[in-house]
């Protein structure tokens, strides 16, 4: 890239899959994301954890070109997201959380739509849609309207829509929410296979166990700041990720009080 401005993203093992520098967003009085710096190494399975309202979704929205940051810059594989939007978006597959889908389309139509919007040719789209529906066990319901899907099926079809163009970086906001255990295991297999073949995955979650088992890297975000980031083993040290998380974020109440709630 010739037009990279004054801040040059540090390269440890080659170019990171995703780099954030000084990314800031303010909603009215509330500082939602406070000048975050973060590097997601290429080929990593990266977990983003934090309590509710920590700024995870806001950060990921700014990283994927859905929300313009007040300040700061984002690079995907060295491509400046906010200067070179189209090229950056080609590299990314995004599963946003808390947004609607075009749910009056059938599942098959929705995934096809996602592929065609990205300018892929019809035949490729058609064969990949078939593969994705099979892998995510949605074949039986391919022709059902998405509005009639259960919450877990909706997550899966949105994931398929994010995968169709074989991105180099996958950004998944809460991908396992309300997905049944079997489907979740299938999705984990797909994601691990994807990472092993050189792709990069970022998942946000607040299920610590899942992140500890699944991710090789993790960042803890709270109050719009990165509290810790690194490999999962570095971040958690000797304790479990959950304990380390609670230690970092704080806010646990000693389980006294509520004496009246005890049954005996």
């Amino acid at each position: 890239m010739t037009d990279i401005p004054h801040v040059v993203p540090p390269a440890r093992n080659g170019t990171p899959a995703l780099s954030l520098r000084g990314v800031t967003k303010r909603f009215g009085q509330k500082l939602a994301v406070n000048s975050i710096d973060l590097d997601i190494p290429a080929g990593s399975f990266y977990g983003l954890v934090g309590p509710n309202g920590a700024g995870k979704t806001t950060t990921l929205s700014m990283a994927t070109g859905l929300l313009r940051p007040d300040r700061g810059q984002v690079w995907v594989h060295g491509v400046d997201v906010w200067a070179n939007m189209l090229e950056a978006k080609r590299l990314m597959g995004v599963l946003p959380d808390g947004v609607r889908l075009f749910d009056r389309l059938s599942g098959e139509q929705l995934v096809t739509y996602s592929g065609l919007l990205r300018g892929m040719d019809k035949d490729t789209v058609q064969s990949r849609v078939g593969d994705l529906l099979r892998a995510l066990d949605l074949q039986e319901d391919a022709g059902t309207l998405v509005v009639d899907y259960s919450a877990g099926m909706t997550k899966k079809i949105a994931l398929a829509a994010a995968l169709i163009h074989a991105p180099r970086l996958l950004v998944l906001d809460e991908p396992f929410e309300s997905v049944d255990p079997i489907s979740a295991a299938n999705i984990r297999d797909i994601l691990h296979g994807y990472v092993n073949s050189g792709g990069t995955v970022i998942v946000s979650s607040h299920v610590m166990d899942l992140v500890q088992r699944m991710c090789d890297h993790v960042a803890v975000i709270s109050g719009g700041n990165v509290l810790a980031a690194g490999t999962t083993d570095e971040v958690r040290g000797d304790s479990s990720l959950e304990d380390r998380f609670v230690e970092l974020v704080g806010g646990r109440n000693a389980s006294e009080g509520l004496e009246w709630l005890r049954n005996s």
Binding site: L116, D121, D141, G143
Partner: peptide
């Protein structure tokens, strides 16, 4: 529940972003 294969208007329009 309905299976795959019915693309509706997606099958009739050109496979371009505008067509989609």
């Amino acid at each position: 529940r309905r299976g795959a294969g019915k693309l509706g208007f997606f099958g009739m329009f050109p496979g371009t972003p505008a067509g989609a």
